[in-house]
Write a protein that binds this DNA or RNA. Structure first.
Lengths: 227, 227
DNA sequence: ATGTCGAGTTAATTAATGTTAAATTGCACA
DNA sequence: TGTGCAATTTAACATTAATTAACTCGACAT
């Protein structure tokens, strides 16, 4: 089962916008088209997207401003800028905001597609199942289910290991409670949620020797492993 | 401790090659320059690289062939192509091999640098995004959600941290009430607005030791963090 | 001036999370 | 097929985050 990726496209030129949307939809991407930056922001806050494609020059709110606002909320989602003028300064500004790529008009749709795919390959592909994680001064081996600090090795239980692995896969991002519960405990009822809390306590004890590593609670949302 | 990233650059034009190498080294990247595809392959197999930059047209072995051979051994390392001719087919061929990006000559070295950084941000997860703010004599770490004054560290709650982050992103500008409410509380109803007031009070208490820092109210509009 | 509405503050309330320990489950092994 | 041990869940109680309530203060308009 392929996941259908969601793309947010903001483009004020209606012709170009529709054309791009058609093309991306035909290529299997669930694409929403918004006519300006404000509508784009609305859309972003109401849905999860895998890639954003923003025209730089747009009415109401330009692409850079939109990107800056989105970066305040989400420092992670890939952003591609479309720019008519190839002005250096604009381009660099875009990268400083944290853009992943930009295209200068006119460009071929095929090229846009390739760049989207190159980004998705990185953002979605690389994360899958890493075996060994470095957590501050600890080394965590998911296969062996053990956490080592220098030559001290601690054996983790299955649940401890699964939870820590999920946290590592989402390092410095929020691991949603429900997601973790459904992944590890299958059922996300009250008791399993409490059980998960108990495991968070256990993991915190295991990691307590390195103050640069912390499992933060995000009230009502989940947990975040920061390091 | 910054990790020094390693770049493999293959470019047959000696002038351009040296120039790029100098530039990248000056920017802190450990860069090896090879004059052709064969030498490039030799280098790749003998050392670990974080990014590859290949000229497409090279003697002995062209960039695409080199990339293909490397992809057989390593399906992961990011590859950027440099191409003189902007021929579509060539470009797409590059992406099909699994390129991450390509640049058409002539390009600015700064642009190359930005693209390298965009890729490293993705592959290494080292978000260069603004994570730490200086607020007067305080230091605010958005990831760890903590505010420190010298060696005194105060933990902030998620909401406190999110609000302070928005204020910092709009330092010395007005942070609109509605914007803050919609981004943090999602819904901007009366009760959430009152809740936000409470958090403003809390933040003011946290920042009270430095008189040069102040959260000002802009009646009917929002708040302004001045410093 | 003065009334209204937005904002400041503190406290009370409610819900989520932290923590420890006891109860239960499940599995390896005699 | 029981026994013992470790893993996991449930329970109980403690603490903290976030919201709501209550009351106060201050800005702005008429």
């Amino acid at each position: 089962m392929e996941k259908e990726y969601k793309i947010l496209l903001t483009e004020d030129d209606e012709n170009l916008g529709m054309l791009l949307r058609e093309y991306l939809v035909a290529k299997g991407y669930d694409t929403d088209l918004m006519p300006d930056g404000e509508a784009g922001y609305e859309a972003f806050t109401s849905k999860k997207y895998d890639v954003c494609i923003f025209d730089v020059m747009m009415p109401k709110k330009d692409g850079f401003t939109l990107a800056k606002e989105i970066r305040m909320v989400n420092s992670d989602v890939p952003i591609i800028f479309l720019t008519a003028k190839s002005m250096k300064e604009d381009i660099f500004q875009g990268f400083k905001i944290g853009a992943d790529d930009y295209l200068t008009k006119p460009f071929s749709m095929e090229e846009l597609l390739f760049r989207i795919e190159a980004i998705l390959r990185r953002t979605k592909g690389t994360l899958i199942s890493q075996d060994v994680f470095q957590i501050g001064k600890y080394k965590f081996d998911t296969q062996k289910q053990q956490l080592s600090e220098g030559d001290e090795v601690v054996k983790l239980t299955t649940k401890e290991s699964e939870l820590l692995k999920l946290l590592c896969n989402n390092a410095n991002k929020v691991l949603e409670r429900n997601f973790a519960l459904k992944t590890i405990w299958v059922d996300d009822n009250y008791f399993n949620a409490r059980s998960m809390d108990v495991y968070i306590t256990k993991l915190r004890k295991h990691l307590k020797d390195d103050p640069s590593v912390e499992i933060l609670n995000v009230h009502g949302k989940g947990y975040k492993l920061v390091m």
